[in-house]
Structure formats: C-alpha cells, structure tokens
Simulated scan of single mutants.
Amino acid sequence: MNLCLFDLDDTLIPLDSDHAWGRFMIRQGWVDAEEFDRQNDVFFAHYKAGTLDIHAYIAFATAPWRERPASERSAAQDRFMQEVIAPQMRPAARDLVQHHQQQGDLVAIVTATNEFVTAPIARAFGVAHLLAVELEKDPGGNITGRIAGVPSFREGKTVRTHEWLAALGHKLQDFERVSVYSDSANDLPLLEMATDPVATNPSAPLEAIARERGWRILRLFD
C-alpha cells in the first residue's frame, strides 16, 4: 500500500474554502459585511504570507455561526456546497483522487481549514479520511471557538498525519511511496516528508522551491 495526502484549498479546488465560507456568511446576512470582509481579507493575506495566527483566525471565523441552531448551520452547509463548492469541483481533481484510490493507496485530505467547512467537501470527493482543524466543544457539545488538539497547519500537518497513521496501526515507513499534493509553501513540512512531492497549482514561492528541488509541478486547473 502507498500513501497519498492531498491539501484541499487551491489544490483540489480552485479557491480557498475558508475564505469562500466567509463570503458566503456575508451573503447570508450573518455578519456586518464591511467589517467581516476587512478582517477576513487580513487573515487570508497572513495565511498566504505564512504568518497566520491560526488560533485567532478560528475564534474569528467560527464566531458568526457557532451559536446558531444546528438545523440552520446544516442548511447553510448544504447551500454552500451546492452554490459555491460543487461548481468548482473539476473533473481533473476528481480523476486524480480516484486514480490513487483505484491503485489501492491510503488517501487522506490534510487541510488547515476547519472540519465544519471541509467535512462535506471531503465526502463529495469520496475521501473517507479528513485531517482538518478540529473544533473544541464544551461538555454540552457547543463549539467554543478554540482548537482541539494540534491544528493541521504548517508543521502541525505532519504531527496530525503521524497521529492518524498511528491510530490506524501504521507508520510512515510502512509505505513504499508517499505522495503529497499541495499548492502552498505553508505545506513544506508535509511535502518534505514525501517520496513524491507534487507542487499542485503552486503559488509563486512553492513553484520556485519545486523547480530548485526538481519536484513535479502539476496544474490541475489550466
């Protein structure tokens, strides 16, 4: 068995699902549009620059919806998938995931976006294993706005991957080939533990690194 790990945003889909969810909440009237948009764009710029405070971002990003009724949250998830995500799920990305699955690879999506936003997307791709930012819940099951455990961001992606493999009774050395697909230099720690790192729709910084190191460059959305 081989291992295949996919980043999600700008890798399997040509947008950032977290940022898009923020825009979606504006359209729902859940937030003050001008102020939320301003803060959301600042956090997004920090993510792109590799300077994001993931804990501050999760507190901000979950505040508009975490106290809403479960039925309202679920309905919004469904609409977001139908209106925003589904039209961006391109055949090339679906085919790539299915290719690895049909080879018998152990496949996971490893993303710095939280589980509320990304769980429906992973299901839509037919990927059973999702390593996303996990949201802490209080004893009553309410989301607190804090992160549970290690966030799957930068070096945290490698920590979460090793924890997940151990829970399945595996370790990285069990796999002859480890493929990692990502667009972002934020994922260098994950890419560097792969035997087959693939810079996928790469940002300019990651493309420069990939060319220097001789990594494969894949453009799914051209």
Rank of each mutant, 00 (worst) to 15 (best):
R123W: 10
P14V: 09
E72C: 02
A119Q: 14
Q82F: 09
R23K: 15
N2Y: 00
S179M: 00
E155N: 11
L8H: 00
L8T: 03
V97G: 06
S182F: 10
S152Q: 12
C4D: 04
H100G: 04
R94I: 14
D95W: 12
E34N: 14
L220A: 01
E207I: 10
R38W: 13
F125A: 08
D105I: 05
P91L: 06
R38I: 11
E136V: 04
C4P: 00
P91A: 07
A63Q: 15
D78T: 13
T200E: 02
V110N: 02
T11C: 01
V198D: 01
E155Q: 12
M89G: 01
I121S: 02
A122C: 00
N40A: 09
G140D: 01
C4H: 05
I109Q: 13
W65I: 00
L15K: 00
Q173C: 10
A75R: 06
L190W: 07
T62M: 06
S74N: 14
F80Q: 03
D187P: 04
R23H: 15
N2W: 09
C4A: 15
L12M: 05
H99K: 14
M81K: 06
L165D: 03
A93F: 09
M89R: 03
T111G: 01
R79L: 11
P151S: 06
T113P: 04
A59Q: 01
I143W: 05
V133A: 05
A166R: 15
F221E: 04
V107R: 10
G149L: 01
D18T: 12
L168K: 00
D9P: 06
D222T: 14
V159K: 12
I26S: 01
A119V: 10
G29R: 05
V117M: 05
E163N: 05
A132V: 10
S17G: 04
L130Y: 05
F153I: 08
T62N: 04
R177C: 11
A199Y: 10
A122G: 05
E192H: 15
E155M: 07
E155I: 11
A75Q: 14
A208Y: 02
G141I: 01
A86Q: 14
D37Q: 15
G214C: 08
N142F: 14
D7L: 09
A92S: 14
D53V: 02
F80L: 08
H129T: 12
T118Y: 01
A199K: 03
I147N: 03
L5V: 11
A45R: 10
M25R: 05
R90L: 15
V107P: 00
R160F: 06
D78H: 11
G126H: 07
A49M: 09
L135Q: 03
M193N: 05
K137Q: 15
A124V: 00
L206A: 00
R154A: 12
A128E: 15
